[in-house]
Design a binder for these strands. Structure first.
Length: 305
DNA sequence: AGCCAGGCTCTCG
DNA sequence: CGAGAGCATGGC
C-alpha cells in the first residue's frame, strides 16, 4: 500500500513556489515530468528503481517561505523519502541565496525592472545529469515549443506512471528504460535519427553510472564542460545547459544560445543582432551572477508570452 | 508553402 | 583548420 512521508522545508527567502515551479512548467501547468497545477508542484522520482510521487505546497509567504513536501510511494522506506526530499531541495534550488543578486541588479535599471515581478524565483534544476543531457539534446536547434512537445512525449510514452486520486503522473524514464525502447522507440517520439543515437549513447553511459552528479559536482565549471563536451552529441551549448539546469551552477552565461542572445539584444542592444562573443563579453559585468541573470532573462521572456 | 527554431557532427576544400 | 550541408518537427 501507498505510504506518505511529510516534512516542512524552509527555503532561503525570498522564495516563490508559484514563480519557481511556474517557470519550470513554462506557466502551462505541465511540461515533461514537471506538473504545477492549483498551486501544487508534483514530480514522480525514481528512488531505488521504484516510483515515488513528490508533492509540494507553499504554506508560507515569499519572505517567510515554508514548503509542505510530501513523498508518496508503495512500501516507502524512510531512507528513500529522505533521498527524494534532498532531490526536491536541489530541484527547487532552495539553498540559492538571491539577496546578493538583487543587491547587484539595483545598479542595472533594465535588470532591476525585469527582476521586480520575478521576486522569489529560484533557478530550478532537473534531478540528474542524465536527464539534463537528454532534455538539452531534445532542445538542440529546434523551436522551444517543439522541444517541449518532444520532452512530454518521452515522459508520456516511457515514464513510470503514478496514479493518485484518478490522475496519472509520470516520471522521466530511467536510462535503462530508454535503452529498452531502442532507437525505434526514440524515433517514435519524433527525435531525429541523430538525436536518437546521441540519447542512446548518453543513456548507456548513465546506466553504467558514468554520469554521476556527485562525481561531476566536485569539478570546476570548465572541467565539467570539457568532460561533457567529450560525449557524442554534446557541445558547448548542451554542456552549459547542464551546468545551469542540472548541476545548478550560478555563474554560467550560455552565450551560444540563440534565444538568450535575442533577449539580450532586445533589452540591451536595441534589437540589433549580436555575436556570441559580444554577448559573452557583455555578460562579464554580471559576474558572479551570470546564471541567475540567464534564468531571469528567460523567465521574463516566458512571462511575456 | 517555405523558412526558421534555445546545435552538433561530419565532410570537404 | 574554417565553412557548409544535413538533420526532423511544429509554428508562423
Amino acid at each position: 500500500m501507498v505510504k506518505d512521508f511529510s516534512v516542512v522545508l524552509e527555503p532561503l527567502p525570498p522564495f516563490s513556489l508559484a514563480l519557481t515551479a511556474g517557470n519550470l512548467t513554462y506557466f502551462q501547468g505541465r511540461v515533461g515530468a514537471d506538473y504545477f497545477e492549483n498551486g501544487t508542484y508534483r514530480r514522480v522520482l525514481q528512488v531505488d528503481g521504484h516510483a515515488a510521487l513528490l508533492s509540494v505546497n507553499d504554506i508560507g509567504s515569499v519572505d517567510e517561505p515554508r514548503l509542505h513536501v510530501r513523498v508518496s510511494a508503495e512500501n516507502l522506506l524512510q531512507s528513500e523519502a529522505l533521498c527524494a526530499i534532498e532531490t526536491c531541495r536541489h530541484m527547487l534550488a532552495m539553498k540559492t541565496d538571491l539577496k546578493p543578486f538583487y543587491d547587484r541588479v539595483t545598479r542595472d535599471s533594465i535588470l532591476a525592472a525585469l527582476t521586480k515581478p520575478l521576486r522569489g524565483l529560484h533557478p530550478p534544476c532537473v534531478p540528474t545529469v542524465y536527464e539534463g543531457l537528454v532534455f538539452a539534446i531534445c532542445g538542440q536547434q529546434i523551436a522551444s515549443t517543439v522541444a517541449r512537445h518532444i520532452r512530454t512525449l518521452i515522459v508520456n510514452r516511457y515514464g513510470d506512471p503514478f496514479t493518485v486520486d484518478g490522475s496519472v503522473y509520470r516520471s522521466f524514464p530511467s536510462p535503462q528504460q530508454l535503452l529498452d525502447v531502442g532507437l525505434e522507440g526514440l524515433l517514435a517520439v519524433k527525435l531525429s535519427g541523430r538525436k536518437a543515437e546521441y540519447i542512446r549513447g548518453i543513456a548507456l553511459k548513465a546506466a553504467k553510472g558514468e554520469l554521476d552528479m556527485s562525481s561531476l559536482s566536485v569539478l570546476t565549471d570548465q572541467q565539467i564542460v570539457e568532460h561533457l563536451d567529450a560525449l557524442r552529441g554534446v557541445g558547448n551549448w548542451t554542456a552549459e545547459w547542464v551546468l545551469l539546469r542540472a548541476i545548478g551552477r550560478q555563474d554560467v552565461f550560455p552565450a551560444g544560445d540563440l534565444a538568450l542572445r535575442r533577449v539580450l539584444s532586445k533589452e540591451y542592444f536595441g534589437g540589433q543582432d549580436i555575436s556570441e562573443d559580444e554577448a559573452r563579453r557583455y555578460a562579464e559585468r554580471w559576474t558572479p551572477f551570470r546564471g541567475l541573470v540567464t534564468a531571469y532573462l528567460f523567465a521574463a521572456q516566458r512571462l511575456q508570452k
